[in-house]
Computed example of a mutant assay.
Amino acid sequence: MSDLFAKLHQSFQLPVVRYALIVGLLIALCSSLLGVTLVMKRFSFIGDGLSHVAFGAMAVATVTGITNNMLIIMPVTIVSAVLLLRTGSNTKIKGDAAVAMISVGALALGYMLMNIAARKGIGRTSGNVTADVCSTLFGSTAILTLKPADVWICIAMSVIVVTVFLVFYNKIFAVTFDESFAKATGIRSDMYNLLIAVVIAVIIVIAMNFVGSLLISALIIFPALSAMRVFKSFRSVIICSVVISLLCAFFGIIISILAETPVGSTIVSADITVFFIFCIISAVLKRGR
């Protein structure tokens, strides 16, 4: 046990590990806030679709040699969020088909570009396309690449996300539970749906370098689903979701350091474990009633 604490103490002497803990907790906070709304509005697919789009945008940035990935990833992901909402409401192309078109297309295009670039030595690819793709999809080496600038960007984005959620809490609550009634009372539900999609796009972009594009949607969905197994009110579900997400992120990072496992996968595994625990709690509570 003392060896584990010694290893943990030694690890936290490294700046990159402290950066990973800060960024991980901020991402957990932001993703859990909007996750409840997405699950209740049946918009969970947006997180998965946008994460694939972000992968395609990162591939383009890598191939073109752009040092600041945000210049491409952020605007492309936000535009895609808008397109998913607009296309999803089209009677000819339903929501699930729109996600399949955009997300799978972006994923395939991104992999093809990285494969071609690796073979031809173009851009910032390492030449090992498997390693590049694995790192981008699962964030396997992200803990070693975080810089102070990344932390400050994440802090700034997190402040914006939390501020938007708190300022528009009542409107988001109304749109989440009864969009038709919200429209009848004069609330511009389309605008707030768009706001939710844009905020989710921002969360996905800041989380991508940490957990990888394929695992982001799990961080958004699992804490909300876990909280909804036990709690019923909107506020209590959000509070519980935030607590679950923060604890899973914290212990996931600690376990990944001690067990030397990928950070993103370890955090998601912790989220899955908590989900099953809450399912058991829910079953016990139902029997008690």
Rank of each mutant, 00 (worst) to 15 (best):
K171T: 11
F210H: 13
A182L: 08
F251D: 03
K92Q: 13
A197L: 04
M157K: 05
V104N: 12
G127E: 03
V202Y: 00
K92D: 02
A283T: 10
I143H: 12
Y111S: 09
S217L: 07
S213A: 15
V205C: 00
V202N: 00
S89D: 13
V17I: 15
C134R: 14
M40W: 05
K147S: 14
P148F: 00
K232I: 06
I221H: 05
L29A: 02
F138G: 01
A97G: 09
L215W: 05
G95M: 10
S135W: 09
G139K: 03
V159C: 02
K120H: 11
G252A: 07
S217E: 03
N115I: 12
R188K: 14
L113C: 06
L219E: 09
A97T: 15
I172L: 15
A28C: 08
I102Y: 00
T67G: 09
V274N: 06
M114C: 04
T141L: 10
I196D: 04
G95H: 13
M58V: 12
S241A: 14
M157E: 04
V159E: 06
A97W: 10
S11K: 03
F210W: 12
V167R: 14
S11N: 04
L29K: 01
F43D: 08
V63F: 11
A182N: 04
F250T: 08
V230N: 08
T145I: 11
S233T: 02
I277H: 01
M228R: 00
A97V: 14
G121D: 08
T64F: 13
A182I: 05
A117Q: 01
A54C: 04
L194N: 05
M70A: 06
I153S: 01
L21T: 06
G186V: 10
I244L: 08
M101A: 12
G139C: 10
F12W: 04
L83I: 11
R289Y: 15
F250R: 04
V76I: 15
C279K: 09
D3C: 13
V23K: 05
V63P: 04
I239L: 13
M228A: 05
V211F: 10
F181S: 10
G24L: 02
C279R: 11
V167T: 12
S103A: 15
S31K: 00
T266F: 00
N69V: 14
R229S: 07
M228N: 06
A270D: 06
F55W: 01
A106I: 02
M157G: 09
F181C: 06
L4P: 04
L194G: 13
S282I: 07
Y169R: 13
T141N: 08
T141W: 06
G110T: 12
K232P: 04
C240G: 15
I155C: 02
A207V: 07
S241Q: 03
S80E: 04
V162R: 00
A28T: 05
L258N: 00
L4R: 12
A224C: 03
V274G: 01
K286M: 10
F275V: 11
G65Q: 09
L113H: 02
D178R: 04
D271R: 01
V76M: 07
M70S: 05
A106R: 06
N209Q: 15
Y111P: 02
K7T: 14
I200P: 11
A117L: 01
L71W: 11
F177V: 10
L214T: 14
F168I: 03
I239C: 06
T62M: 14
T185E: 15
R86H: 09
F138V: 00
K147N: 10
T145P: 06
